[in-house]
Design a protein around this nucleic acid. Structure first.
Lengths: 228, 228, 228, 228
DNA sequence: CATGAATGAGTGTTCATTCAT
DNA sequence: GATGAATGAACACTCATTCAT
């Protein structure tokens, strides 16, 4: 844009800046709210604090979200993207073994969700589900259901191809999911105020968890992810 | 009740009942508080509601617990029994294989903690840890640390006796704990308002989880806990 | 109560005092609210001010009335007693001329309503009716309708007995009511902040109004209620 | 519009319209404000609503009126025309009987004020006088005082010419004014949300009211304004 | 001039906590 | 001890007013 330095009227620019701010506001507020809701819970988070963290005044918050509750719902909705379709596509075209597939799914989950702020949503839902049944319902439809479906299909593939032994699919899904839920909860609760002794190295843990999930504690073969 | 004919006035009886109630008060309050804190979180639980559920007046609550925060601490403290000593004793004298030992530990954990109200404490800590750092610290010392220690010793025994392969102990502990934490969280959040499709059969899940933990998905042998 | 000076326990007395206060609270609050609502309108009256005038804290107000709106409704309801039955009884047994009857009705209205605080309710309703349609409806049923009925019956009697000439009853009712409504409005608006020049002597006005209503401006006979 | 062919671009036209609108702005705002103030009272009327009804933005309102209070004052001031001079002139040159004169005054009042939006101002003053003493004072000087003066002069004329009997002038003025005030209040309060049973036919009422005022309920002669 | 995004003082309402009874 | 009436600090939310664009 070489011409832009000659811009005769600053109107465009400042207008743009204002517009940009206006469009950015909801996002900034949602980000601030996510942080605080995850950190302190819904009830203990003050609206003014959210506003302050987003760099605006209390009134502005209510300009964008009609109430604290609507803000909460927006936070959850915003962070529950339908990332599953993309994910399922990847797995549908996967050509390796199902063990590799499962490992891939767990590792990419960590990179795309577990290690990001989005993981806080899970903590939020676990903590507040009973106070927001409608939101919990929404979360189940949008996250839990497709998530389970995804894992179930992987396990099914493993069984059908003779890679995994026959097992109770429904509960096996929970076995795969449990360590992931656990990591998110841990990170946002004990992990946030724990002494060094409880530090967890997520990548190491995931690697070993995959190993254990596939071959078990008694599994033969090389030692499992020895700590560097 | 042949003695009752000597009770000239019902005063004595109700007096006695009152005494009993008086001594029971703190316990009833703690039980009510546990329920409500688990259900709605600390901030969203009203002191009056706790009192009402315990069958006393608002004022009485503050007679026994100086503040809502103290009540919370007492709830946590009260429900963190030093059951570990007893438990460790059991395991120290355990004579079977380590696989059996691990299975025993997980199953008895379910009976003694997982399926009881005490499981709510874990949900509470996960939800509120960051609002109550001192309590979280206390919880770590009293529950997490000994719990980890217990699991670690089992795993260590397995490795030393050549039953389990060598692995990163610290993270393996998390692999054992994760499904248990998961069950408690699930039960008190999604599980409390979930449709039938998300129902979980804890015993089945634990059985299969033990199997998976020991032999993995690819493990040979008979199918794992096929659903009845 | 000569024995009361020996009352061994002051419990009874203080209990009583507390009880009395508790029972008196709603009344005190309603009185304070009536004053302020009449003076400043519903919206411009602050809940805290009402409480302060009743000698209690803001919180106490909400102990007795769930919301400002409920307080408003209670104020109106409280001051709309079914005084009409008593009134109608009086008029049913009235034996004089209908002129005397009308005069009696207007004068006793002044003593029982017009000159009391209850007159403020009319101002309130006139000012706020459109903001509280349900209350306005209630007011119509409880006050306007029976009030009109009462006046209508008097006029009807006058016509039937040949004392009053035939006229459009419905509108004649308004002619009787108008000066009374007017007095209440005036008193609580202009009258409350008017210079001496607008002072009104209600008794004089009513007397002359009765005279005019009965005989008109052109009526023969002695001068009408010359000012003392 | 033969000149319009010289308007090469529609800009001029819309420019013109804009100019016109610009000059019309204050008037539109005052009209909108009058409606809303009358309907909901001063405190319960939101500035933004006034602006919206006038078709401008919130900011624009404050461009023309420094504050909501100033807007209110302007509304009152604007709607209190010095129509009295014109009126007094009419009455000064009146040649009929004083009864006719009074009837004319009341009927023309209805046409010029009572049935127009201006009647809302009276409701406003009655409702808000105590919150705006200065405005109330102004209203007294500009409306009440000259209004009373006008009525007083008519009555005085009637007495002096022997048409009306001697009476307490001050209070007789109120007797004339009361039904007019009443009509305006009624129309803007109960009348605005009343069931058909409380409907009032202003012309009928005024006619009969005049009759009653002149000859009273007991007046001989033909029946008073029998309902068509 | 007009706009509407932003502000923050103000108000209704809640609820932990106190204390007279 | 037990009660529950009373308190007032705290917080969600509103809205008149400002001002950058």
């Amino acid at each position: 844009m070489p011409l832009s330095k000659f811009t005769c009227c600053p109107l465009a620019e400042s207008q743009a800046k204002r517009e940009r701010r206006k469009e950015a506001r909801p996002g900034e507020l949602l980000a601030a709210a996510l942080d605080l809701f995850v950190e302190k819970g819904f009830a203990a988070t003050r609206a003014e604090e959210v506003a302050a963290r987003a760099g605006v005044s209390k009134g502005t918050l209510f300009l964008y979200f009609g109430s604290k509750e609507e803000l909460f719902k927006a936070v959850v909705r915003e962070n529950i993207s339908g990332r599953f379709t993309e994910w399922e596509a990847e797995l549908t075209t996967f050509t390796g073994t199902t063990s590799e597939m499962l490992a891939y799914a767990m590792r990419s989950w960590w990179e795309r969700v577990g290690m990001t702020k989005a993981s806080g949503i899970t903590k939020l839902m676990m903590s507040e589900a009973r106070n927001f049944p409608e939101i919990a319902e929404f979360y189940q439809q949008e996250v839990i259901l497709p998530g389970h479906e995804l894992i179930r299909r992987i396990l099914q593939r493993g069984i059908e191809r003779g890679e995994f032994r026959v097992l109770d699919l429904e509960h096996a899904v929970y076995s795969v999911i449990a360590p992931m839920i656990f990591m998110m909860m841990w990170k946002h609760s004990v992990g946030a105020c724990a002494p060094a002794s409880f530090e967890m190295h997520p990548e190491l843990f995931i690697n070993q968890q995959i190993e254990l999930l596939l071959h078990g504690l008694t599994g033969a073969g090389q030692p499992v992810a020895p700590r560097a």
